[in-house]
Amino acid sequence: MEGILAIWQRDLTKFFRDKARLFGSFTMPILFLLIFGGGMSGTMENMMTGSMGAAGGAEFNYVEFVFPGIVAMTLLMTSIFSALSIIEDKDFGYMKEILVSPISRVSIAVGKMLGAATVATIQGIILFILIPLIGLSYDYMALLQVIPFMFLLGSALSGLGLLFASFIRSTQGFQMTVQILVMPMIFLSGALFPVNNMPAWMDFIVKINPITYGVDVMKKIMIDLEGVSPVVREAMGLDLMVFGRQVSVFEEILFILGFAVLLVLLATLSFRRANA
């Protein structure tokens, strides 16, 4: 337990000490929000007005739908890239100090995972500060409720990063691979635009993509679904169906939890046979 805490704390200390990284992590999500929120909302709202008539479209605010998606996307980027710290630790030798110590290998994996998830959650919360600035309003309770889920999602995704970091030895290789992985994960998750009416093979990717469920849960917690007309709900892809039935938030959380546990176990195995 103490080992997990030590590893977690070290990663956090290093995050707050690295000024460039701190700056980047503050600005990156803001940039996303400006580009996707500001840039795409005009188009999306026009499309909605076109399909629903002026009356339906007027009450529709795309930014409200895309904001949880952008938070999820920030979580994804930060969590996965935080696993880079493992490769850095290998490069700078510190991983040896960790591996020859009597800490259990599970603790190493869990400590690293929680460290990345914490940093990611902090970034997500930073985005909340922007809510009033871009003319949005979410229920405070909903925002408080979504934070633990963000942490869970961050854990699952950093587990994914951890697994990659254990296979890939170079920083460049890691960045390349993760880039390739992250792009489709974001675009085929419904984070930035609805993923309705996709070709079958793409729909398959959407349904196995853990981000899909992460984004869906975040939207369902944050957006007041009662006040949204069924047409908008459907158009924004909020009626996520798997095998022809609608999935519940509970099932989705369970899926992500399982995903996180599985990845930690895999990462632990890789530490066990590690010879850094």
Partner: peptide
Amino acid sequence: FQENTLDEKLTANENLMLHCRFYQ
């Protein structure tokens, strides 16, 4: 070890404290 395995971004005290925690 032959190569440096300290965390250079941390202070001497922090490096030692981490070691204490790793080794209980």
